[in-house]
Design a protein around this nucleic acid. Structure first.
Lengths: 342, 342
DNA sequence: GTGAAAGCGCTAACAA
DNA sequence: TTGTTAGCGCTTTCAC
């Protein structure tokens, strides 16, 4: 058989392992080697055998660039998010990576820092690298969708997730915000909470409006006698202040937080007032689950899982890449996770 | 001048914009166009002008594959971590991405799931994609370093971070664990805490041993009369149980947690016992900062910033990529962040 | 100042 | 069953 020394002596230089090297050493043509390695039916069994042995011996690894140039397609998915850290996107990326890897794709991660310019530059990068597809959580300032059009026109499917634009042009994947809002209200009602401080985020965000609308609607329909105090906070600090002021002024039997950030602020106020959960006050949040697990008792929450959103997003994008071209908005369901805070 | 229609009419088919297209339309050679676009001194100013105009008009974007194949180098950095989510790595990735982007590099993110096999497969992927360099937080089961050798031998520099192997062969970047341990002890001492419940992670981990050694050493040297109760926990749950049992049994004047996970568990016990911070008990942790900010009062901590580690790691890798080949272990300093828990 | 030509490593007709 | 050939889009000598 062969020995590594034997082989490398053939090509004494920095000999990177290529089809050509294998071919030369085996006195075969490059295409025969190429076919043998892909188990092409035309190739004789013993030839395949020989080729594979040598390939393994010299640890042949195909040059992805050459393949990509030739086929004009890559196994890389571009992911553009406002920021990686924070409460949500890292979980999304983790779920996405899991799913993508199982299909042989890798992730190229880019942060926009919520800046449309950077976002557009990142898109360009994805185009230059002929990404197989792109997942985007839009920067909050993004209004001009033409960079996305261009990408789409270049044959690279674009799917929005989480922060999705109004346009009906691209497929979108997002959390079932209405369902989460409904579930939240329903849970509070079924637990008999009547006087609720409900904390929502910036009213300008569509996520806030969707969750709020379903939340309020459910109360009006199923528990019109409940007392709902709706407040909006734009940050953890604001959430904390608002909560603190509210619970000093009046006794609520539950606090509801529409997101992790809001929850974190509310919890600080509750801890500061040293209220007992769930006896003095109940707590419910819409969350990804990490933050609620940090308190004692743990906070019950409506789960909006980043991981699940990641996996689902891959599925949709995957369909787009195989020309199935789905359309419209896809929702990842929310579920109630019961802990001890209500 | 040109119009888009005019240009595209020249090549009516799916005409992706390439140097060739520009060259044909301008009756120039491909090489001239290539040079013009890179502002080569040989090219006449007016030629450059014409070329650039048309390139802009048709939104020419170089084909990264072709460049990479030709130059056999990419602007992609491979990043292999046990998992993206959790307490730490997402912050690292965020910091790294920031720094990398400013140097024109993109990130290819891969999770090993703490599985050496997957880690090795991920390495292979990086090799196939001719990554410019690779950053690895080793899987906990990784003992065989040969896959890394192979990568290094292929001319792709490998730098370890956070979870670094014993081997002196590769450059490593990690948190200044000894310094963090020292600072923790020093802070507790200077705040006059005498009877301390100190919670550490799994004793098998080198991070634990380094922090513990410096922590204990500092007490022995500067406050030998202090009472130190050292405990080890392998999870949030364990940390909570250990803390709960300890504070029920005896009165401590401070709890120290060597990591976010340990802190989260300890805080649950403290919340459950309804101890007042900092009056009933002081709290100090080594942390990245998110978790401490969730409590009231916020927890003082020794910062081990994932972002900083990410930026520093890029610097080291960048040096490796430019043949400067640094050597040894680099440490990211720890700093004390004072909040209200001590 | 510009062009011609070779070639990076691979795939896929088309030949033999 | 295997080989020949023609590129994919770009960079880079080397000529003119």
């Amino acid at each position: 058989m062969f020995s590594v020394d034997n082989f490398f002596s053939f090509s004494p230089m920095k000999s990177r392992s290529t089809l050509k090297h294998i071919a030369e050493h085996l006195h075969l043509s490059i295409s025969t080697v190429s076919r043998a390695l892909k188990d092409h039916p035309d190739i004789a069994a013993h030839t395949k055998q020989k080729v594979r042995e040598l390939a393994e011996l010299i640890e042949y690894e195909p040059n992805a660039f050459a393949i990509q140039l030739r086929t004009n397609a890559s196994k890389v998915i571009g992911v553009i998010v406002p920021e990686i850290s924070g409460y949500f996107y890292h979980a999304f990326i983790a779920g996405l990576e899991d799913e993508a890897r199982s299909w042989g794709y890798s992730l190229m991660i880019l942060q926009s820092g919520n800046d449309p310019e950077t976002e557009s530059a990142n898109l360009r990068l994805c185009r230059m690298n002929r990404a197989a597809g792109i997942l985007v959580a839009a920067a909050s300032g993004t209004t001009d969708l033409s960079p996305f059009d261009r990408t789409d026109a270049a044959g690279i499917p674009v799917v929005f997730f989480d922060k999705v634009p109004e346009s009906r042009q691209f497929p979108k994947v997002s959390m079932a915000d209405a369902e989460a809002g409904f579930l939240s209200a329903d849970t509070l009602i079924s637990k008999g909470r009547k006087n609720i401080l409900a904390l929502f985020g910036d009213h300008a965000l569509s996520i806030t409006r969707k969750r709020l609308k379903a939340f309020q609607g459910t109360f009006q329909r199923h528990a019109p006698d409940s007392r709902l105090t709706i407040r909006h906070a734009r940050s953890q600090q604001e959430s904390r202040q608002i909560t603190f002021d509210a619970i000093c002024l009046e006794e609520y039997d539950a606090v509801f937080a529409m997101s992790d950030e809001i929850l974190a602020g509310a919890m600080k106020a509750i801890l500061q007032r040293r209220l007992r959960i769930p006896d003095d006050i109940g707590v419910l949040a819409i969350s990804t689950g990490l933050i609620p697990s940090l308190y004692e008792p743990e906070i019950s929450y409506i789960e909006t899982s980043g991981e699940k959103l990641g996996k689902r997003s891959f599925e949709i994008l995957h369909k787009c890449m195989s020309k199935a071209a789905p359309h419209g908005e896809f929702l990842v369901p929310a579920t109630f996770i019961e802990k001890g805070s209500l």
